[in-house]
């Protein structure tokens, strides 16, 4: 199946036309129910973001007594300013940003280059090489062998454990390959006749022309890198300074949960209770910081997101 990816066609939805048929009372009831459902589901989807946000900017005392539910009051940004006091947060943020940027850059380059190379019919053993990489999408040795392998390769407790395993991403290679195949072959041939080598063709023709698909896989890769916390947890057991922001947030959330558990049993003093409750705002603020990049990037990237799932669905 080949798909014309270059046409930025907006999906045209079938819509009920106003003219041409009469609206019955049943239709009106249906419309009301339909709108009610979608509007409430939308609200449910975005309310947690909003609730988290207003709780981090409202007066902490009001938050503590549970008075901030829908409307922010006593707005201040001290919680964000105080984050610099939270240990290790800066390093974790740095690690997260670094792995996202470096990991995504490597992955995008590798996918583009491999995707280009596997379209070259004259390559020795091309079919085998391509299948060798693609088939890895469908099996998985499991978590423990993966961990043992990483430690055998000496990657545990190093930053590169975040980056190197993700460089060859079979699914992205398929996407890029499909895309490159849709680029007219004449472009390449004429460059080849003019004496350009494979690297030059890749740099001057393939890379610029496949930017739309590369942007798509870059967005997906970056989100995946930013959100991953399991590799931090499993591979960095001896290097807390390499924890990512997500895993740090998880640790914070867990400690506060344990405090809450202790409080229920009445084994904790009033002071500790207050500290724990203040810790709650801190935790929410850290969560807000962790979400922020996604929310900021989302409006610009949503078209790539959507394109991603569509080409993912009709891969060929």
């Amino acid at each position: 199946m080949s798909i014309a990816l270059k046409e930025e066609k907006k999906p045209r939805l079938y819509r009920v036309k106003k003219r041409g048929f009469k609206r019955t009372p049943g239709d009106i009831v249906f419309n009301i129910l339909n709108y009610t459902f979608f509007i409430s589901f939308t609200l449910i989807c975005i309310f947690p973001f909003y609730y988290l946000f207003i709780n981090t900017i409202s007066d902490n005392e009001l938050v503590r007594t549970g008075q901030i539910n829908f409307i922010p009051r006593g707005i201040h940004f001290n919680n964000y300013l105080m984050l610099s006091n939270v240990n290790d947060l800066g390093t974790s943020a740095l690690v997260s940003v670094a792995r996202t940027v470096i990991g995504t850059a490597f992955m995008v380059f590798a996918s583009a280059f491999v995707g280009y190379l596997v379209t070259k019919k004259e390559m020795w053993g091309r079919k085998f090489v391509y299948r060798f990489m693609i088939v890895t999408m469908y099996f998985n040795a499991g978590l423990i062998p993966w961990y043992l392998n990483m430690s055998m390769l000496g990657l545990t407790n190093t930053f590169w454990a975040y980056v190197i395993p993700g460089i060859v991403a079979p699914f992205n290679i398929i996407l890029v390959k499909t895309y490159i195949e849709s680029i007219p072959a004449e472009l390449e041939e004429s460059a080849f006749i003019d004496g350009a080598g494979h690297f030059t063709i890749f740099r001057k023709i393939i890379w610029p022309l496949s930017k739309p698909i590369l942007a798509t896989i870059a967005v997906f890769g970056a989100v995946g890198h930013w959100n991953n916390f399991v590799d931090s947890m499993i591979l960095m057991s001896n290097k807390p300074q390499l924890y990512t922001l997500q895993y740090r947030l998880y640790i914070y959330l867990q400690t506060s949960n344990n405090l809450a558990e202790l409080m229920r049993g009445g084994k904790i003093s009033e002071a500790a209770l207050n500290a724990a409750l203040n810790a709650r705002t801190v935790k929410l603020t850290v969560a807000m910081i962790t979400i922020l990049p996604i929310i900021l990037v989302y409006p610009f990237m949503s078209r790539y997101f959507e394109k991603g799932i569509m080409i993912g669905a009709i891969k060929g």
Partner: peptide, 20 residues
Amino acid sequence: TCTTIPNFISWVLVYSFAFA
């Protein structure tokens, strides 16, 4: 747009919502 956003946040963040 709004219903797609939750797909792009990690489970840790989903848990922080649950926590909040």
